[in-house]
Write a protein that binds this DNA or RNA. Sequence first.
DNA 1: TTGCTATTCCAAACAAACATGGAATAGAGT
DNA 2: ACTCTATTCCATGTTTGTTTGGAATAGCAA
Lengths: 229, 229
Amino acid sequence: MGDRQRKKELFNQLARVGKALGNGKRLELVDLLAQGERSVEHLAVVAGLGLSTASAHLQVLKQAGLVNTRKDGTRIFYTLAGLDVAGLYEQLRNVAVDRMAEAERARDDYLHGGRAPVPEAQEQELSREDLLARAADGAVTVLDVRPAEEFAAGHIPGAVSIPLEKLQQRLDELPPDQQVVAYCRGACCVLAYEAVELLHAHGRQARRLQDGMLEWRLAELPVTTGHAA
Amino acid sequence: MGDRQRKKELFNQLARVGKALGNGKRLELVDLLAQGERSVEHLAVVAGLGLSTASAHLQVLKQAGLVNTRKDGTRIFYTLAGLDVAGLYEQLRNVAVDRMAEAERARDDYLHGGRAPVPEAQEQELSREDLLARAADGAVTVLDVRPAEEFAAGHIPGAVSIPLEKLQQRLDELPPDQQVVAYCRGACCVLAYEAVELLHAHGRQARRLQDGMLEWRLAELPVTTGHAA
DNA sequence: TTGCTATTCCAAACAAACATGGAATAGAGT
DNA sequence: ACTCTATTCCATGTTTGTTTGGAATAGCAA
């Protein structure tokens, strides 16, 4: 086999990772898996895919080494293969949003679209460092608005879990006089935006954490697992 | 437009970057562009592509925001859009090689294949930090074996440029009693491996720098441009 | 064993990406 | 104006990915 042929083969192998990340549905699956492990059925439902389709996409991700599987009885749970994969996904997202005007617009449409874009909201976002400092004083309530199972799979130490769907009816669980910092999956997740809006509508002091759990993990900050409040 | 639709659109936009990286030929182009700007024809020749094909691939990279163009008369020069893109490429490569056994094998085949794989050669590779320390003392000669134009587009300060093709006939330009540290494009570039082998065959003290110019740039270490020795 | 469930495999229809050669474009030189 | 060159655009055939529904598999529970 010639040198040229070997080079071609190398780049084709590297391209398999690119291909795996070159499909919107697969990126959505990666985004979900970054929050914790999931069964095939769960992923299919949440991503709006047929079972066979979801399975096929997961095979592609697996062939590219991006996800691992764990068998539990008759179920198969998929997980991201590691933090490096989450980092790759984050960097891809950053490059896309920074370098492609259309991607930036699509993100803004998704995050703020349909609602009023509040210009000062962005400056009010709290950085991870600030959150750590304030949470240490007990000066803020940290609110996780992701689904309960994602909270269980890993959350910011001391955070309270109230999934966005149930936030309205469980408002009284939040101290009324304290500022609330809401967070969700990551930079491209709507949940915390909507939570902050809902809290403001009810006269609460609320801000959004910059980014979310994905970036928190990548920053290697402490993570608590389990259902406890 | 519904929320679901907007989400789909966002992930489809992000996937365009993945798609752009999902083709071996395009990755090869990115690899070349990481060394400096290039005309279409040059890229086509070096990557072994037809002109139309190369142009089409470059369009895809451009649409994804990964490369920029500069017009100079009738020529068009392509460049990587930024260090973030180089970083994305590096991370993709690392994930591929770390997570896919086939990719790791393909890399090793390309780097060492056809020649004897020397097991201790890897430990003899010099880290960037060590190189900086040794070069400051003048204890080693730093040798850039990439093509001259890549050297001109950016090299390690103090490095000597002898393209691999001309190394044999220009051996006498290297001080015979000093250790030589050879480097090339990056972790997946053969040039420095072959250079070290050739130098050893001529009884020289030679080692390879870990990785190459791509990773040097990403580490934000000093870079010199221009043709001067 | 039989039934039940979650997942994967398979085949077929459909859609998207790729390579190629020739035409069109745009800039520079004459 | 014409010519030359570098690049892009276009139409083509070919290959590769995607979705779908149904069949096959593997594990659990009677």
